[in-house]
């Protein structure tokens, strides 16, 4: 049950990776990276339940925080040319 869900999440992230490779603009690629990051959080939680070690959820929580901060940092770098 969890394995099938993990495979579907991996297929969806591959579709988002297609958009990240062939995106015509910079913002399409950042959008696809955000989607892949959100799917990675779900995938880490599912892998923790598959392996029987749910302590992976701490990794998923930290990954969600880093994903949000990374998107904001990339956009600020793009707009003002620096992180300050």
């Amino acid at each position: 049950m969890f394995e099938v869900a993990a495979i579907i999440v991996i297929l969806a992230s591959l579709l988002a990776l297609y958009r990240a490779i062939t995106g015509p603009r910079f913002f399409d690629r950042v959008l696809a990276a955000n989607v892949i990051g959100t799917k990675a959080v779900v995938l880490i939680a599912l892998i923790g339940f598959i392996e029987g070690r749910p302590h992976f959820l701490d990794v998923a929580l930290v990954y969600a925080l880093i994903n949000f901060i990374a998107i904001l940092a990339i956009l600020r770098q793009r707009e003002s040319g620096g992180l300050g």
Binding site: L31, V41, A60, L72
Partner: peptide, 17 residues
């Protein structure tokens, strides 16, 4: 906690984008 965090953070990131 993860669900609430992503429910807040993901639409906010897309709005900023």
């Amino acid at each position: 906690v993860i669900v609430v965090l992503v429910l807040i953070a993901n639409p906010t990131a897309t709005f900023f984008l």
